Simulated assay, not measured.
Amino acid sequence: MIALWDTTATEVVDALAAERHSAGGTSGLALNLVVIVDEQGERDAEVALTHAAQQHPCRLLIVVRRDGHGDTARLDAEIVVGGRLGPCEAVVMRMYGPLADHSESVIMPLLASDVPVVTCWFVPPPPCAAEDPLGAFADRRITYSAHADQPVAALRVRAEDYNPGDTDLSWTRITYWRTLIASAFDTATAPAESVTIHGSASDPSVALMAGWFGTRLGLTPTIRDAEVVRDSPHLPAIKAVSFQLEGGDEIAVTRDEDGRTLLRRTGFPDRIQTIKGRMLGELLAEELRHLDPDQSYEAALRECTRPGGLCQAEETA
């Protein structure tokens, strides 16, 4: 590990090269991962990034924007190769003053060549992620609307500034739910004529789930606001989803406080499985497995934020 205080971008590049040589380097880098955090979220972010790096060896560039950084530009950097942050080449940079608003000047020289770039915001993202200096050069841009002051309203911003390659971890949170529900429809005897979601109306994952149903089933779901006990803050606040099929058959998925999920279908035995809450690092690792544009996310996002849609109704309320 190398620590540099009040340093420059050139010195950081040289120190990273020296540390790679000393540690033998990290072979087979899969990508560059640029992550923007604040002081309060730095520790949780490092835990998540360590988990993600176990599955995706990367050059990890963490930008910590210091609170109350004043008028003097300053850069402190910590370089770790194959250390506490997992099998990656990591540079943790704390930026002060005007430098915090121009961090791309430090990041660009540090990017590993010939591998994709993913930029992830663990803080409120800029209005248009694809046009932000740290998002413009990225192949994928990952936000997390659940951390916004108004999470559901934040989805409208994501829809307005959407560009191919954008995604949101609020969408990743419902992967298990979508998989289970899609498998239930493999045995459906008729099309669905109504959908009801029991969950928190203030959860962006619930809105995206409703948007997904709209694109897949051509229906506008009813959301019944319900208090949901979760074993992880990164699990969507969904208690149950039920479908009424044409002809009277029903499909229902219900999750209890212990994570046990009951699938009920007319004419079939009940099925029980567990949907456990996932940590932030698991969500991020899932998103890093595919770097192509997520068309399903785009469609669900646009459906739930269309004029008169669920997010607009939430903002009006």
Rank of each mutant, 00 (worst) to 15 (best):
T7M: 07
T8A: 08
A15C: 06
L16A: 08
A18F: 09
S22A: 15
A23Q: 15
G25P: 11
S27W: 11
L29F: 09
A30N: 13
L31T: 09
N32V: 02
N32R: 09
V37S: 07
D38Y: 07
Q40H: 15
E42L: 15
R43L: 14
D44I: 11
A48Q: 06
L49S: 03
T50K: 13
H51W: 11
Q55R: 13
Q55G: 14
Q55L: 14
P57L: 04
L60I: 07
V64I: 15
D71Q: 12
R74M: 06
V81F: 03
G82R: 01
G83C: 09
G83L: 07
C88Q: 02
A90F: 03
M93W: 01
M93N: 05
R94E: 12
M95R: 07
G97T: 02
A100G: 12
S103W: 02
I107S: 03
I107V: 12
P109Q: 04
L110E: 00
L110K: 03
L111M: 08
S113R: 13
V118F: 09
F122Y: 07
P124H: 14
P126W: 07
C128Q: 15
C128H: 14
A130R: 09
A130G: 09
D132A: 12
P133H: 08
L134W: 01
R141F: 08
R141T: 03
T143S: 14
D149K: 14
Q150S: 13
A153Y: 08
A154M: 11
A154Q: 14
A154W: 06
L155R: 02
A159L: 09
G165N: 07
D168H: 10
L169K: 06
R173T: 12
T175G: 12
W177T: 04
R178W: 06
T179L: 13
T179S: 15
T187G: 05
A190P: 13
A190F: 02
P191M: 00
A192T: 05
V195A: 05
V195F: 01
H198N: 11
G199W: 01
S202P: 07
P204Q: 05
V206W: 03
A210F: 05
A210E: 08
F213C: 12
G214R: 10
T215C: 11
G218Q: 05
T220L: 10
V228T: 04
V228P: 02
R230V: 11
S232Q: 05
S232K: 02
P233G: 05
H234K: 03
L235N: 04
I238E: 01
A240V: 05
V241C: 02
S242V: 06
F243S: 00
L245C: 00
E246V: 12
G248S: 03
G248L: 03
I251T: 00
I251E: 00
V253F: 00
E257W: 02
R260G: 12
T261H: 03
T261E: 09
L263Q: 11
R265H: 03
R265K: 09
G267S: 08
P269H: 08
D270S: 13
I272S: 10
R278L: 13
G281F: 01
G281K: 02
L283H: 07
L288K: 01
R289G: 13
D292Y: 08
S296Y: 10
A299N: 12
A300E: 01
E303T: 12
R306W: 04
R306Q: 14
G308F: 04
L310P: 01
E314L: 09
A317C: 13
